[in-house]
Write a protein that binds this DNA or RNA. Structure first.
Lengths: 341, 341
DNA sequence: CTGAAAGCGCTAACAA
DNA sequence: TTGTTAGCGCTTTCAG
């Protein structure tokens, strides 16, 4: 590959001039600049960013760690980040933690060697310790939050979303509303759970811990939890389910089908996070939609802005709003009378 | 961040020895080695891979370009690649071309500056020229093929898959089988199309160009093409559709629904590429499944093997087999008599 | 077995 | 406006 030396030689200038002609065109005479540019084009010159990074101590690279690239939610976050980073001339290094703190740690270590100028992370439950290894690098926590002081966060308004979902079910007349909630050490899970609980209590309903089951964000977990909830004895069984993330919702819907419960007649369901699957399943799913792509771009924009000029004040906490989209997976509960039809 | 100089100083050795102790432990006395290792750990030393790459001319990095990370098929390819690369100590740089040759070109240029030691690419229609910029770098074409001589390819057996799909529909009694096919300059599209045509002709059916509509791999394209095909006058309208990729299949299913055609009664559908969506839609979709994750890992394994020791003979063309999964979106066509029921 | 020194490709002082 | 030179952090000759 042609180096800047080759370009300099061909243009009959020093490497310094060649370098300047390419990166600070105005510092160089027009005629020489043209000579250099021409030589560069002729040789197909592409700067060696490795050498440049080493010299400048700036890699123009940001690290990105999501927990599951196979989850469309995360794929969309990643795309938002990449598109925005790209617009600003940064390259994003994408890693997967698979929701596993050990993998996350390895990703961080690998990343560290590449000297990323910043990191956008959807943290696992072990992130707080893992992140300690990266001191000095600006961090943006995306979607979830570890509670580490002084880091920027970009999240959706989980509380409002969960409250809207719960109130929607209550307004339809449901009184036994179950919830399948993510890991309790993940902020999104606790926020959604807390809001669900408050909404219930605000409406004068009692919060019943027996109707709340945990899962680890995966489809299986949703399936398992839903099966348990839906096989509760009649009269104790929830007539509606609010499910804390997209993957578990899939599992729950399949569990309901396996039990021959028809949605929404026998069971109302509200999921968190919209997706094509939610839109096209039968019946189309009522969900709390998140501005997923925007979450990604916002995270990147915030990080890059911070790289350009480090903030001194308190860290920014950006929260994007969620919206309840009512489709056809929710309806009033079947009344006992009708059951005996 | 601690550099190797810091380690050397703390261990009271030269940087050369420190370097050796870390990367070639057997070239150094045990006692000094221990001193160095201890110092390194104490400082949290992480080698600067940028500097190392510059020195060695080896970045231990491979480039990956897929056409659409939001498509679960591509997400899975990417994951397979990353997991395999990781196992071999390589870092994968992931880019998106969005099926756009111009974006692909930009991705290749950015990548080039990072000196990837190899590239795995799902090529767009413009890839052949774009790839010229990367001469000298081993390339693996994944899923699709540009026909460039001497590059390794890893693909699914598209012909067998498409033939199986078509024969399945024929064996159910369909005679008017439409196809929605991808861009004609994409190898997978033409292979699937050719196999469909041959299967038809082998069964003594005539290939009707009016029943074959092109699309650009996206959901909309599938929707549009299906709508046109399904609004053909009765008697000309296809009773079955074979659709050339996963995204277009979604569009086609939605188009059928919009036209109030019930699947499979009014219309049989076979899609290419399995997905959770295909498995859980109603009715579950008959598809040609591909070993997606394995395609990814194979591509990475082949590339890395090639990096270790460059092949001299002709390039490898790896083909993984596809399987027809018959679910419930296909059935015999409705007979005219029944139509008047 | 260890150290001194060179150099990967680039850019930023500094001089001219 | 241009050239000379040093040095980013690392590994690898080459001597000792």
């Amino acid at each position: 590959m042609a180096s800047i030396q080759d370009v300099a030689r061909l243009a009959q200038v020093s490497t310094a001039t060649a370098s300047r002609a390419l990166s600070r065109p105005d510092m160089v005479a027009t005629t020489t600049r043209d000579r250099v540019l021409h030589a560069a084009r002729q040789l197909g010159y592409q700067p060696n960013v490795i050498a440049r990074s080493l010299r400048q101590g700036e890699t123009r690279t940001i690290g990105v760690i999501v927990t599951d690239i196979l989850n469309p939610f995360h794929a969309q976050l990643a795309k938002g980040i990449q598109d925005a980073a790209d617009r600003h001339g940064y390259t994003a290094f994408l890693f997967n933690s698979d929701e596993d703190p050990a993998k996350e740690r390895r990703a961080i270590e690998t990343l560290r060697g590449h000297l990323p100028q910043g990191l956008i992370i959807v943290p696992t439950s072990g992130a707080r310790e893992n992140l300690a290894a990266l001191s000095g690098v600006p961090i943006v926590e995306l979607d979830r939050v570890t509670g580490t002081p002084a880091v920027t966060t970009v999240t959706a308004d989980n509380a409002a979303g969960a409250a809207a979902a719960t109130r929607h079910l209550i307004s339809l007349g449901h009184t036994r509303i179950g919830m399948i909630v993510g890991q309790q050490d993940i902020s999104t899970a606790t926020q959604r759970h807390d809001a669900y609980r408050s909404a219930l209590e605000d409406a004068g309903l009692t919060y019943d811990p027996a109707l709340v089951l945990p899962g680890n964000h995966r489809e299986d977990d949703g399936h398992r939890a839903a099966t348990r909830l839906l096989t509760l004895p009649e009269g104790r069984r929830p007539t509606a389910l609010f499910i804390g993330n997209n993957e578990m919702t899939v599992g729950a819907v399949l569990a309901a089908r396996a039990l021959n419960l028809s949605i929404p007649t026998d069971l109302s369901i509200v999921g968190f996070d919209d997706s094509r699957w939610a839109q096209t399943m039968t019946p189309p799913l009522t969900v709390v939609a998140q501005p997923t792509y925007d979450l990604g771009t916002q995270a990147a924009e915030q990080l890059i802005q911070q790289l350009r000029r480090p903030r001194d004040g308190p860290p920014l906490h950006i929260q994007l709003s969620t919206t309840l989209i009512v489709r056809h997976s929710t309806s009033p509960p079947r009344t006992p009378a009708l059951t005996h039809h």
